[in-house]
């Protein structure tokens, strides 16, 4: 895969926003990959957790905002528990979701859920998916 790294992308306000919303120092990451090794959801992800951090450092805003991964992460905090540099990766992913959700770009279309989808799903599931996937 060919990727272009540029000063313009690295200085994009997106990078600062991700750091601000997540409260994390992205440059602390040295790409050991423990987050991706322990993540139970990697098989469904298109960009792995360690790659998310690298992309965020480099300002790869478009790639991150259209990635499947940010909607696959269920904030189980396994990555956070295992990061040797103390980075909260789940918070970084939350920050990217928030940037989209705050533009009213909902991921979950609640009105499209059928009665069968909702079925006997417990209230905590409905509420948490709305909290995570809608603005």
């Amino acid at each position: 895969m060919r990727i272009n790294i540029s000063k313009r992308k690295i200085k994009d306000p997106f990078v600062a926003k991700v750091e601000e919303l997540s409260g994390q120092n992205l440059l602390a990451c040295y790409q050991c990959g423990k987050c991706s090794a322990g993540c139970p959801a990697v098989s469904e992800m298109d960009i792995l957790p360690n790659q998310i951090i690298r992309y965020a450092q480099l300002g790869f805003k478009d790639e991150l905002m259209r990635s499947k991964s940010i909607w696959i992460c269920a904030s189980c905090f396994t990555c956070n528990a295992r990061c040797p540099k103390g980075i909260n990766i789940a918070e970084v992913i939350e920050a990217i979701r928030q940037i989209l959700l705050r533009k009213r770009k909902d991921h979950l279309k609640v009105e499209k859920l059928s009665d069968a989808d909702k079925g006997d799903v417990p209230p905590i599931a409905i509420i948490s998916s709305m909290r995570k996937f809608t603005s």
Binding site: P40, A41, A74, T78, L113, V121, A125, S128, K132
Partner: peptide
Amino acid sequence: KTECCASYQTVDKPENVADR
């Protein structure tokens, strides 16, 4: 025993939950 069950993904991605 501490693996995530895929949590609230059960609402829109029950197939992922089935895998877990």
